[in-house]
C-alpha cells in the first residue's frame, strides 16, 4: 500500500475541510518527510508524535478532556489543541479496522453549513485554560477556528452566543464512517471542527491514532 497522496489530500482539505485516504500514520509521517513542501510535523518532534485515543467514561477520563465532561456520549464540535498558543493546522485520525462510532466534521460557511459565520464567533472573547497559564482568544481569528467548550470559557455575551451557535451547527456536520481497514481522516483544524459521535458498541475496542501536522504555507 502506497499511502496517502498528500497533494490531493491538501486539495481536499482546502475544498471540504477534510480528506479521507487509505494508509497508516507511519506512511503519513514518511510522506510528510519526503514531500516537505506541503506539510510539516507539528512541534519539535518529527516522529513519535502519534497519540492513541480511546473512549473513556467520565470518571476515568483525563482532566480537561472532552471525555471528562461528555464520557461516551456525543462530543461537541471542537478544534484540536485549542488550549495551545499555536494549535496544529491539521489533525490526522487513523483507524486500523472498521469501528461503528463515526466522526462528525463541519466546515462552517461551506457545504451543509453554508450560513455565514456570525459576528459573535469572531468577536466573542473566551478565557482559554492552557497548560499552566490562561489566555484570551476568540473562536475565529487570524483565519482559523479555535474552539473547545471544555478548555474555553465564554468571557462575554457574544462568546456565549458563539457556544450556542456551534451547538446548533452540530446537526449540519458530515459524518465520517470508519468502515474500512487502514483508514485515514485528515481534518483542516483551522477551517473545520470535528467531534466524535456517541460511542455505539465499540467502547472497549475503538482506538484511533492521531497525528498533528502544520501546513507549509505557499510562498
Amino acid at each position: 500500500m502506497a499511502g496517502p497522496d498528500l497533494a490531493s489530500v491538501r486539495a481536499s482539505l482546502a475544498a471540504d475541510g477534510y480528506a479521507v485516504s487509505n494508509g497508516t500514520l507511519e506512511q503519513v509521517e514518511r510522506a510528510v518527510q519526503m514531500e516537505h513542501l506541503l506539510f510539516r510535523a507539528q512541534g519539535a518532534k518529527a516522529n513519535g508524535s502519534v497519540k492513541h485515543l480511546r473512549p473513556y467514561i467520565t470518571k476515568d477520563a483525563p482532566p480537561r478532556s472532552l471525555s471528562a465532561v461528555y464520557g461516551l456520549g456525543a462530543q461537541p464540535l471542537h478544534t484540536d489543541g485549542a488550549h495551545l498558543l499555536e494549535p496544529p493546522d491539521v489533525t490526522v485520525l487513523y483507524s486500523s479496522s472498521p469501528t461503528p462510532t463515526g466522526t462528525a466534521i463541519l466546515k462552517p460557511g461551506s457545504g451543509t453549513c453554508s450560513t455565514p459565520v456570525p459576528e459573535a464567533v469572531r468577536e466573542g472573547v473566551f478565557v482559554v485554560r492552557g497548560n499552566g497559564f490562561s489566555f484570551l482568544a476568540s473562536a475565529y481569528s487570524g483565519r482559523r477556528f479555535r474552539f473547545d467548550p471544555v478548555t474555553m470559557s465564554p468571557g462575554d455575551q457574544m462568546a456565549r452566543q458563539a457556544v450556542a451557535w456551534f451547538q446548533e451547527q452540530r446537526d449540519m456536520a458530515v459524518i465520517h464512517q470508519w468502515d474500512q481497514e487502514e483508514q485515514l481522516l485528515f481534518i483542516d483544524n483551522r477551517q473545520a471542527l470535528h467531534a466524535r459521535e456517541a460511542v455505539v458498541t465499540d467502547s472497549e475496542t475503538r482506538v484511533l491514532g492521531r497525528l498533528s501536522l502544520n501546513f507549509v504555507e505557499e510562498t
Binding site: 468577536e123 466573542g124 472573547v125 484570551l136 482568544a137 476568540s138 468571557g155 462575554d156 455575551q157 457574544m158
Partner: peptide, 8 residues
C-alpha cells in the same frame, strides 16, 4: 483583547 472582553 482583554479590553475587548471588558467592553463587551
Amino acid at each position: 483583547i482583554k479590553a475587548r472582553m471588558f467592553v463587551h
